[in-house]
Design a protein around this nucleic acid. Structure first.
Lengths: 202, 202
DNA sequence: ATTTGCATTAACCATTTGGTTAAATTTTTT
DNA sequence: AAAAAATTTAACCAAATGGTTAATGCAAAT
């Protein structure tokens, strides 16, 4: 009985690893089986097909990403603290799961139709609306500079997420080495927050 | 003779389309042949293997992306105009080639080792150094706020590129419709520039 | 101890996929 | 016009890949 739980978890961990790194098209069932240390047939015994296994992983990972967004947007802090919290949380998450955003983006980009119904349950609208409302209030008050709230939110996200997505490209282009990158990224949170707050300062 | 040029071009155009949308692993030689309206064997006659064909496309596209970066960084404008020029140019490029950045990022992410030698010829270091030098000068003068130049450059790029990469994800999360997205993106250039300049303003 | 039912595997299967070959067609050269 | 060279195709091949099956192992229930 605990065997079943165990094996299923082991498979899922292996699948997550492979799918995150290689994407759906690049992943091989055999590789997942090997990484899990089991027979390939057992994958199908537990998850029936590559697509079904993939979906399990994808929704889990999507949930993880969205969950962090929602958590970052929610809460009763003032705008400044909210932004600070969001950037810290988000960059923190990506430091631990660097493959996550590119994976989700890729698979949604590949075929968003396929997921669209099942993804509705993850909606962030309430949380986003609350944050946007707060932004507009502050802008009205004249407490911060005026921007289109959608773009402001997009900017916060862009600054937090992009470096993780673009790392291999940036490193190739700039020929920055691994250690230098690490060092640079250690400063990222502070640099992003300063940039945002300065852009908002009236 | 002109046949040869013609066919090669037709194949490359088809290959570009398929590879950009599906990536290396997701692309099928048969699909490329179909799109080009030719026999699959002819692909191999012209390009020998999937990998070789892919490399031709990849380096072309990488060059396009990097070329734009270099062009954006070069020039004898002052910093303000340079940033303006860069953002306009870059977002303009991506409006026309929305698949480009995700494609390059993905394939470099998949296996950057494979390309690293061949990509050295594209180096943007001189142009980047010139821009970074200019930034540091302005910061020293007290003309703009102080940031780590690397992060400032990264921020400019993040704000310009991220929305194009994350479009399917953002649209899914926010349930923004296609027309709304288009409308929002029409403002993007201005919003990004304003955000950057406000963040730099002392 | 035997049966029962789930977990696991080895071997196998059908399809897909990148790639090849030999012949046919077209173009270029002589 | 004939020969030679280049281009294009139909048919084929071998390996890879997702998936299945039938047998085996194994723990719990009888």
């Amino acid at each position: 009985m605990s065997e079943k739980q165990d094996t299923e978890l082991i498979i899922k961990e292996a699948a997550r690893d492979i799918f995150l790194k290689k994407g759906y098209a690049g992943a091989r069932m055999q590789d997942i089986a090997d990484k899990a240390g089991i027979n390939k047939a057992l994958l199908h015994y537990y998850f029936r097909s590559k697509e079904k296994l993939f979906d399990v992983i994808f929704f889990e990972q999507f949930g993880k990403l969205i969950g962090q967004v929602k958590e970052g947007l929610r809460g009763d802090m003032n705008l400044h603290d909210k932004i600070e919290f969001f950037v810290d949380k988000y960059i923190g998450l990506l430091e631990q799961s660097p493959y996550l955003p590119l994976f989700v983006i890729n698979e949604l980009s590949r075929d968003s139709e396929r997921f669209i119904d099942k993804l509705k349950s993850f909606e962030v609208y309430p949380e986003a609306a609350s944050m946007i409302g707060m932004m507009m209030q502050e802008m009205e008050k004249g407490a911060i500079k005026k921007y289109h709230p959608f773009h402001l939110l997009m900017n916060i996200m862009s600054l937090s997420v992009f470096p993780f997505i673009a790392k291999p490209m940036i490193m190739t282009i700039t020929q920055v080495k691994d250690e230098d990158w690490k060092e640079l990224m250690a400063d990222r949170k502070e640099q992003v927050k300063a940039f945002i707050f300065n852009a908002l300062e009236i």
